[in-house]
Amino acid sequence: MDLLQRQPLLATSLVLVPLVSLATPSWLTLAGAPPCWPVLWLLPWALADGRRSALLLALVLGLLLDAQHPGLVSLIPGLVLLARWWGPLRARRPAIERPLSLGLLALGGTALLNLTLMVQWLAWGWRPPLADGDRPGPDPALLARAGWTWQDLTTVGPHLLLAQTLLTALLAPLVCSLLLLLWKRADPDWRG
């Protein structure tokens, strides 16, 4: 947590993530899917400041982003998992900071984050099967339950996951390298 303690103002840059998510232009989307901005911020931060700082800020970031969306599905579990994964990589940062490594880490991270969302939607959208003897035909109460259905997740979900993963992986070498460079310049005691 060196960077967070020495330069706490740098951590405020995470406020930009929800703002950029809101302002994503349509030309920066792939098949309608926007880049996964939380991944593009958390990856360089975890590489720069380690696991504990990344876990703390993943929680804050998750709370901020969840406030933008209705419903109970949360980004926090996925971001915490990513912080746990990427934090220990700080020790091997010079090798990790290569563009290809950043791209691959962003690829895996975005896929993992999207999978945690899909699992949550599946859990919330699970509907009990009709018992024997129930009347055939649609049950309006079950139809009215909001959320992703299994059918929607299997048709639209993979398409969305692939598009967002690919786009984020392509942007990661550019965005993450830029952020690491900015933070390095802002902190004179950087131990790169």
Binding site: A144, R145, A146, G147, W148, T149, Q151, D152, T155, V156
Partner: peptide
Amino acid sequence: PSSRVGVWVNRSRNQGLLSGSGSA
């Protein structure tokens, strides 16, 4: 996908539920 709105077909007056599916 969380959107559910009661609609009907104007011609036949048959009721249904318009459900978002994540696609357009």
